[in-house]
Each structure stands twice: as structure tokens, then as C-alpha cells.
């Protein structure tokens, strides 16, 4: 549905994008992740035909964004980062204007507007001027204008920023429900959002793609060792000594102690996960095993790790 090949963008002499490649399949939700200034917004602006790339090729639904921009624009719903809206218009008027300009017929426009207003939770604000709305409500109007003509492709630049927790959940659900019929690219800094809503993640940093995969695979790939959390009642010195003897244990990290119960994180070599042996050993020594669970590496950790590793390679 969306193909991006060797995309570069130069602002003056500054290279914001240095050859970006990725694909998005039809019906997929793709998360766009990266630190500030990575080039997420720049990529999205190229895809939405706001400005052309310096070099490289991008197609949406088979149409080139530069040569066939009108066809591309017809198929895209775009929510820009800072949600620029006409402050002097009423919500309903505004959505009617956008809907009509995006090709909704005069006959359907009323139902479309009220449907999208319901979906985005702004029905009760209908008569208000956009300039009078709070940040969160402006965000919702922005989302509503992107959705108004049921576009094939949605490009959302930080769609849940500024929303309250309840609305965030609703909007995420809304985006999730779009999968299948619509193709979605969303950028975000909120990593759980990516694992919750996206089927695939593109991580970019300093204008380059540094990883493309499913959130699950990313976690597996980067995580070089299994980490297990223990809560053990017993003499800490002995516990560490005994656990260290187990084959495959790479490292034991002692955390805080309260009422004689100590927390540990044990790192096991991948492929040699003696999970069974560890609790047996603890019981055998007569210590109390209060808790045992595996610790997943969060996307945050992966993100930080990838971004810093990238830095390490360069310097």
C-alpha cells in the first residue's frame, strides 16, 4: 500500500532524511518510532504530498506522491503534529468543509459528519468555535477531519498527544478498529502505544531506519538474555553464592531487602534457561520462595538500546 525507497530530504544543507526504506501492507498499522528530530514528521509530510523529497521514491496505493499527488491526496487522511485548524470556524462547518473538499457528496455529508463526530467524542461540542476548544478537543477535531471521508490510508502524527487517559484508550481502540480496511501509519513517543496498537514498528533515528519488525520480534531479538525476578526469604550472601553455581546463570543483581525478604534479578544465558533448577535449589536450601516471574525487556529498553548502540557505532 505504501512503499518508500531511499527517501532523502535536505533542508538547506541539513540532511533530515538519509535514505529511508520501508513498506506498509494493506490493512496494516505501522508504528513510527524515533527520538525528537529523527525525521518522522518529515517523512509523513513527504507521504502526504505537502512537500517533495529531495531524492528517492514514495508511492501510496500505487501512485507516486510527486507525480500523481492529487490521486494520493484523495486517498489519505492526515493528522499533522500540531493540529492546525481554522480557529474562526465552527466544528460542524469545518468538518462539512473538509468532507466536501475531500469528495464526500452533498447528500452524504450530514451523516458522515455526525458519524465521525460520534466516533471522536465531539458530538456535544458541535456548535463551538474551534478556537474555543481545549487542546484535547482540538486533537479530536483533527482526528475527525482525517477520518471524515473514510480514506484508505491514514497518516497520524502523534495522534494521542494531549488527550486524557480515557480518551487515549478510546482513540487507540478506534485506530485498532481501522486495521484491515485502512492502512495506518502513526508516529508516537509512547512505546506501550506501539505494542498495543501496531502490528509492525519502524524505528528511525537521525534520518535512518534502524529497525523494522513486529513489537514482539524486536523484544526477542534485542533481548540477549532471559531475566527472571525472584523474591527470596533467606540469607542474601548464601543465596547469591548458591545461585551463582547454577549452570547458565550470567549475573545476579541484588535489589532491596525488606523484612528479611530480598529481591533479585537473575540473568540466564539464552538457550540455556535453567528455570526449573533455580526454584528447586531455593526450596532445597530451605529458603522461602515468595515470587518468581520473568522480566520482559520493554520497548523503552529496546528503543534506548537501539538508539544508543547506533551512536556507539558511529563514534
Amino acid at each position: 500500500m505504501i512503499e518508500v525507497e531511499n527517501l532523502t530530504k535536505t533542508y538547506g544543507s541539513y540532511n533530515a532524511l538519509k535514505g529511508i526504506n520501508f513498506r506498509v501492507e494493506k490493512g496494516e498499522i505501522l508504528g513510527f518510532l524515533g527520538p525528537n528530530g529523527a525525521g518522522k514528521t518529515t517523512t509523513m509530510r513527504i507521504l502526504t504530498c505537502f512537500f517533495p523529497a529531495t531524492s528517492g521514491k514514495a508511492t501510496v496505493a500505487g501512485y507516486d506522491v510527486f507525480e500523481n499527488s492529487l490521486e494520493v491526496k484523495k486517498r489519505i487522511g492526515y493528522l499533522p503534529e500540531n493540529v492546525p485548524l481554522y480557529k474562526d470556524m465552527e466544528i460542524t462547518d469545518y468538518l462539512t468543509f473538509v468532507g466536501r473538499i475531500k469528495g464526500v457528496s452533498a447528500k452524504d455529508i450530514k451523516t458522515k459528519v455526525s458519524k465521525v463526530m460520534g466516533d471522536c467524542g465531539i458530538t456535544h461540542m458541535a456548535g463551538k468555535l474551534i478556537g474555543e476548544l481545549s487542546k484535547g478537543y482540538r486533537q479530536r477535531v483533527g482526528l475527525a477531519q482525517a477520518l471524515i471521508n473514510d480514506p484508505e490510508v491514514l497518516i497520524l502524527d502523534e495522534p494521542t498527544i494531549g488527550l486524557d487517559p480515557k480518551q487515549i484508550i478510546e482513540i487507540r481502540q478506534l485506530i485498532k478498529n481501522l486495521a484491515g480496511r485502512h492502512t495506518v501509519i502513526l508516529s508516537t513517543h509512547i512505546l506501550p502505544e506501539v505494542s498495543m496498537t501496531c502490528q509492525r514498528v519502524v524505528i528511525i533515528n537521525e534520518g535512518r531506519v534502524i529497525a523494522v519488525d513486529t513489537p514482539h520480534n524486536l523484544t526477542n531479538q534485542i533481548q540477549k538474555a532471559a531475566r527472571i525476578f525472584f523474591k527470596i526469604e533467606g540469607p542474601a550472601v548464601n543465596v547469591v553464592k548458591e545461585l551463582n553455581k547454577v549452570k547458565g546463570v550470567k549475573m545476579i543483581e541484588k535489589k532491596e531487602t525488606s523484612n528479611g525478604v530480598t529481591d533479585y534479578i537473575v540473568e540466564l544465558e539464552k538457550g540455556n534457561e535453567n528455570r526449573k533448577v533455580l526454584p528447586e535449589l531455593i526450596i532445597k536450601n530451605g529458603w522461602g520462595l515468595h515470587e518468581m516471574r520473568s522480566v520482559e525487556m520493554s520497548l523503552e529498553d529496546i528503543f534506548i538500546k537501539l538508539v544508543t548502540e547506533e551512536k556507539g557505532v558511529k563514534t
Partner: peptide, 13 residues
């Protein structure tokens, strides 16, 4: 106000 970004990404010439 940045509204040009939306206006120019609508299917208008």
C-alpha cells in the same frame, strides 16, 4: 497557523 499544511494535503489544486 500551519493550516496550509492541511489545506495543501487535501485533494485540491
Amino acid at each position: 497557523s500551519g493550516t496550509i499544511e492541511l489545506l495543501l494535503t487535501y485533494p485540491v489544486r
